[in-house]
Simulated scan of single mutants.
Amino acid sequence: MPTMKAAVVGEVNAPWVLQDVPMPEARSHQVLVKIHACGVCYTDALLAQGVLSLRPFPMVLGHEGVGEVVAVGEGVTSRVVGDRVGLPITQRPCGRCAFCRERHPDSFVTANNCVAPVLTGVNVDGGQAEYIAVDAEGTVLLPDGLSYESAAPTVCAGYTVWAALRRADAKPGARVAVLGIGGVGHLGIQFAKAAGYHVIAMTRSPDKHELARRLGADDVVSDGAGLKAAGGADVLLHTAPTHGPAVDALKGLRPWGKLVLMGISAEATFPLPALAVTSHAFEIVGSAHNGPEYLAEALRMVARGQVTPMIEIFPKERVGEAYERLLTGRLRFRAVVTY
């Protein structure tokens, strides 16, 4: 049986180890993708640490894979050999449950409501490997000219923040605050600026102030009081890993403002100041990718150079180091592994 290299997580809290595993084949309605790059996401860490437990170990993670179609299975008409594709997390829904019968667009809402979804790198093996076989409809075509290295983090992190901004549905000229200047937040600043908003970056790290301005922030503040003094925000994009700073940031949210929660945190609850939410008519909005059209938009914006992911590139032989740097917070800002 042919083999390939893949990053295998053997057990809870184990390191990622590059080793030989069986090479998959494209079955009916699947394509075989030669992975060129795959991003490392914080959700990968939650899976590797057992915080999210959706299948047994060992496992191959990775839901930010991008590459080239090298074979197509029976019945595939939407993809051909040579297509450059990305592999978002929601590969396909079951198509039969009550939720699926309502015919919603595939998104992370589908992943959490379909009774048996196939989730790339979550409940089936993912893109931290040289090859992956996936449902053809679980791929997205990459724009011409977009590098695999820049496409990889856009498939999840860029998708997440752009879909959140679109879900906020802010008016032209609105003031958008981005809380947290990390793997998602540094993209949030750029997407919000590219969309024409007044952007306020929120960070407690003084060393990130100048970077936030280079990324496009019009103002940089450290907390809710600073946000209010700067004129407040109509939309607050919460990209920080913990919820405390977002609760504080509500002090600077303008009346009828929207707080948008995205991504996955290890903190299960969000403590809201009930009086402030009620008296200012705040909206608390959940955002979960929200449909593949937003991923296509995000990829086009990156391809046009309006948004540039800040990445550190690791060859597959250093995949364990990429994961370790994620855990220790030493990335600026996304790790991308090449295969």
Rank of each mutant, 00 (worst) to 15 (best):
V221I: 07
H186S: 14
D218Q: 04
D169F: 05
V17S: 08
V235Q: 03
E324C: 01
E317L: 01
T43S: 15
T139D: 01
M301V: 02
T160P: 10
A152R: 05
A303L: 03
A116D: 15
A266M: 10
I89W: 08
D135I: 00
P241E: 00
S287H: 06
P245Q: 05
L250K: 08
L142F: 03
Y131D: 05
V85I: 03
I181K: 07
K228H: 10
P315N: 12
W162R: 08
H198L: 12
S279I: 13
A133P: 07
G127A: 13
R96W: 03
A230G: 11
A26M: 05
A194E: 13
E137G: 13
H198F: 12
L250Y: 07
V134L: 04
R79Q: 08
K258V: 10
L211D: 12
C38R: 05
L52P: 11
T239R: 02
A303S: 14
D219W: 03
Q49V: 02
V221G: 10
N112S: 15
A194G: 12
G196H: 05
V184S: 03
A276M: 15
A249M: 12
D106V: 07
P2N: 15
T308P: 05
K171T: 09
D218K: 02
H238I: 01
A163Y: 01
A194M: 12
P24L: 08
A240C: 10
G65C: 06
F99I: 01
W16N: 04
H238M: 11
A157C: 02
G291C: 11
E324L: 06
G232I: 04
A201W: 01
L165V: 05
A133E: 04
L253A: 03
M23W: 04
G182P: 09
P56C: 01
M262P: 02
V285A: 02
L250G: 06
A246Y: 00
L295M: 01
S53V: 02
T242V: 15
G65N: 02
Q19E: 14
Q30A: 00
G39V: 00
H29Y: 14
